[in-house]
Amino acid sequence: TGYYDVLGVKPDASDNELKKAYRKMALKFHPDKNPDGAEQFKQISQAYEVLSDEKKRQIYDQ
Rank of each mutant, 00 (worst) to 15 (best):
T1N: 11
T1V: 15
T1K: 13
T1F: 15
G2I: 10
G2N: 15
G2S: 15
G2R: 13
Y3Q: 02
Y3E: 02
Y3W: 11
Y3G: 00
Y4N: 01
Y4I: 00
D5C: 14
D5M: 10
V6H: 04
V6D: 03
V6Y: 03
V6I: 15
V6Q: 04
V6A: 04
L7R: 00
L7D: 01
L7I: 01
L7H: 01
L7A: 00
L7Q: 02
L7Y: 00
L7K: 01
G8Q: 06
G8P: 00
G8F: 04
G8W: 03
G8V: 02
V9Y: 01
V9P: 02
K10Q: 08
K10C: 15
K10R: 13
P11S: 09
P11A: 08
P11V: 07
D12M: 04
D12I: 05
A13R: 00
A13V: 12
A13W: 01
A13I: 06
A13E: 01
A13D: 03
S14G: 07
S14K: 06
D15C: 15
D15M: 15
D15I: 15
D15E: 12
N16T: 13
N16Q: 14
N16A: 15
N16W: 15
N16V: 12
E17N: 00
E17Y: 02
E17G: 03
E17C: 09
E17H: 03
L18K: 00
L18M: 04
L18F: 00
L18E: 00
L18V: 09
K19A: 12
K19S: 09
K19L: 15
K19P: 00
K19Y: 15
K20S: 13
K20F: 10
K20E: 15
K20A: 15
A21L: 05
A21I: 03
A21M: 02
A21C: 07
A21D: 00
Y22C: 07
Y22H: 01
Y22E: 00
Y22Q: 00
R23E: 15
R23Q: 14
R23Y: 13
R23H: 12
K24E: 14
K24M: 13
M25N: 04
M25P: 01
M25S: 03
M25V: 03
M25F: 06
M25D: 03
A26I: 14
A26G: 04
L27W: 11
L27V: 08
K28I: 11
K28F: 08
K28T: 08
K28P: 04
K28Q: 10
K28A: 10
F29D: 00
F29T: 03
H30K: 07
H30G: 07
P31F: 08
D32V: 07
D32T: 10
D32A: 10
D32I: 08
K33V: 14
K33N: 13
N34A: 04
N34W: 08
N34T: 08
N34R: 05
N34Q: 07
N34Y: 08
P35M: 06
P35S: 05
P35Q: 07
P35E: 05
P35N: 05
D36S: 10
D36Y: 06
G37Q: 07
G37V: 06
A38Y: 11
A38E: 09
A38D: 07
A38G: 09
E39G: 05
E39F: 08
E39S: 09
E39A: 09
E39P: 05
E39K: 09
Q40F: 14
Q40I: 14
Q40S: 07
Q40G: 06
Q40D: 07
F41Y: 11
F41C: 06
F41N: 00
F41R: 03
K42A: 11
K42C: 10
K42R: 13
K42E: 08
K42D: 06
Q43R: 13
Q43S: 08
Q43A: 13
Q43N: 08
I44K: 00
I44W: 02
I44V: 08
S45T: 14
S45L: 15
S45P: 03
Q46D: 11
A47P: 01
A47W: 06
Y48Q: 02
Y48N: 03
Y48R: 02
Y48L: 03
Y48M: 04
Y48V: 01
Y48W: 12
Y48F: 10
Y48G: 03
E49Y: 13
E49H: 12
V50D: 03
V50K: 05
V50I: 13
V50N: 04
V50Q: 03
L51R: 01
L51H: 00
L51S: 00
L51K: 02
L51E: 02
L51V: 05
S52D: 02
S52I: 13
S52Q: 07
D53M: 06
D53Y: 05
D53Q: 07
D53T: 06
E54Y: 14
E54D: 09
K55A: 11
K55E: 09
K56D: 04
K56Y: 05
K56F: 07
K56P: 03
K56L: 13
R57S: 03
R57P: 03
R57W: 04
R57H: 03
R57N: 03
Q58F: 11
Q58N: 09
Q58M: 12
Q58G: 07
I59E: 14
I59N: 09
I59V: 13
I59Q: 13
I59P: 03
Y60A: 04
Y60C: 05
Y60R: 02
Y60I: 03
D61L: 06
D61S: 06
D61R: 05
Q62C: 12
Q62M: 12
